[in-house]
Write a protein that binds this DNA or RNA. Structure first.
Lengths: 281, 281
DNA sequence: ATTGATATGAAAATATTTTTCTTTTTATTA
DNA sequence: TAATAAAAAGAAAAATATTTTCATATCAAT
């Protein structure tokens, strides 16, 4: 917790009645306080502007504005709680912003720890040499597949990423040994994705899975297994952190691919960038 | 350097004479500025209080006090190592993984600092009350639009998110006052997105933009302006960090929306989850 | 119950910020 | 180059925000 908040907490027993009320409000709504005026804070905390002004002075700040400034700087520096939080009713927007930030930061850090260098290398090599690349994913994972699709297109890969399960099987059935199929599913149990990857495997393609960490069907089916961090599951959260984690892994793979085949791929990347710029306007 | 200072630096050529003088003073005395009043800053920077107030507004802060607060929080940030690395040749996979992690973490932290509570509230309220919601975005931002589309669908909103520019204009032209149009573009200069949002505005819809921080066409067109952190631009990196940042903002908006209308929206969210589970297998 | 000490909020005083309005500067055209 | 229009900037007025003062309320100790 921020050092100012700690100081307030420790001083609790020395506060007067209204000051205590104010202190509690500040402790519970620290993020909100920094964007309030003294009048608003007086109303919200059910105290008066005079009390607030005196409170700030008693904490050895120059005044309310000075207090707010120092608190804001202090809060910005504070490390975030490391807990995945679910959506609950009527939270303040400030606390939601903090919670989501924390979830996403954590999701990225955790996922980075789960990246296996060997599997990563295998995946990059397979993609580099692939004749055709198929990406399978539905719903949220479909978005991730689309993202990867755009990236691979820009470096001239032959790639398909249909959202339609029938089309997924259709392209899967055209794969050959040396081709690559990537199945993306957070749970690793999405039926459509499993089916498509099974079909690709049957055709002799190299199969890659990107799932949550731990045993699951999709991962057990695939030659190369990539993982992202396991979050507490909740239907409310809507897979937000897991999608960020999946994209993070995609970014890592793509960057490794481009870095390793720099001379060949970077000109293509730059060309696609310039061409779009040129012909779009 | 702090993302606010970077934004000021990048905008230098768009400043007027006195604004430039002020900008330079701020860049060279950032630490001092946070403990000055507007009158003192006017004297020190040899400008006027009016110029300063206008300057802060032009940077999308609520005013001088808000600017000072955000700057103070920003300066307090301990900078992360490996700041926004671009793809280079033949890096080890380990170093790439670390660099991408660092980029993404930084992107999320910076973007969180740029979220303006007032604009967020306006955006959430507008979306909550919207009859129809239109999402515009192409290429990478199109992926983000698709993501938002899936989320909004799950809470029963009437929403459209076409990638096709003609379809975007087609749906935009059917909007009415009370409806909402969201334009997503990292640069804020994507022609198709600007066109679609302009059309929506003409029809009387509330317009929301999600762009990089700093002056840009899309943001200047819109009623509600949301920003994500300004990264160094590079054609190689392929907007990886910016896409994560945009999704982060979408997650924040969506979570705030659901939290604020908990009783109404959560049952829909859970229903969609259960229905998919039931009928998919 | 009375007294005195402290705590508190309303309102006055002060300080600060924003907006308006006028002047100045700059650019444009004849 | 002068005339005019348009934009920029500062002075001052208006609006806001903060601090201090002061009257009243509360509470503890007799």
């Amino acid at each position: 917790m921020s050092s100012i908040l700690i100081a307030i907490q420790e001083k609790q027993d020395r506060f007067k009645r209204q000051e205590l009320k104010l202190a509690n409000y500040i402790l519970n709504h620290s993020q909100a306080v920094v964007s309030m005026g003294i009048t608003e804070l007086a109303k919200e905390s059910e105290t008066s502007t005079a009390t607030i002004s005196r409170f700030c002075k008693s904490l050895h700040f120059q005044g309310f504005t000075d207090f707010k400034m120092k608190l804001s700087a202090d809060l910005a520096q504070t490390p975030l709680p490391n807990l995945y939080q679910d959506i609950v009713a009527g939270n303040s927007f400030e606390s939601i912003v903090t919670a989501i930030e924390s979830n996403h930061l954590r999701s990225i850090s955790d996922t980075t720890r789960l990246i296996d260098q060997k599997q990563l290398k295998l995946a990059v090599d397979a993609l580099a040499q692939a004749g055709q690349i198929d990406l399978y994913g539905v719903a949220t994972s479909g978005i991730v597949a689309q993202d990867f699709y755009q990236k691979l297109l820009r470096v001239g890969k032959r790639v398909s990423a249909f959202a339609d399960p029938h089309m997924q099987i259709t392209t899967a059935s055209t794969l050959q040994p040396g081709d690559v199929a990537v199945g993306i599913s957070y749970s690793g149990e999405t039926e459509e994705t499993i089916t498509a990857l099974t079909c690709a495997k049957e055709r002799g393609a190299t199969t890659i899975s990107l799932t949550k960490y731990g045993a699951n069907t999709l991962s057990s089916l695939s030659d190369i297994k990539l993982f992202c961090s396991t979050l507490e599951e909740g239907m409310r959260r809507g897979d937000m952190a897991s999608r960020i984690a999946q994209l993070h892994v995609i970014d890592v793979i793509f960057t490794c691919l481009v870095s390793q085949h720099f001379d060949e791929l970077v000109p293509l990347l730059e060309q696609s960038y310039l061409m779009v710029k040129k012909y779009r306007s």
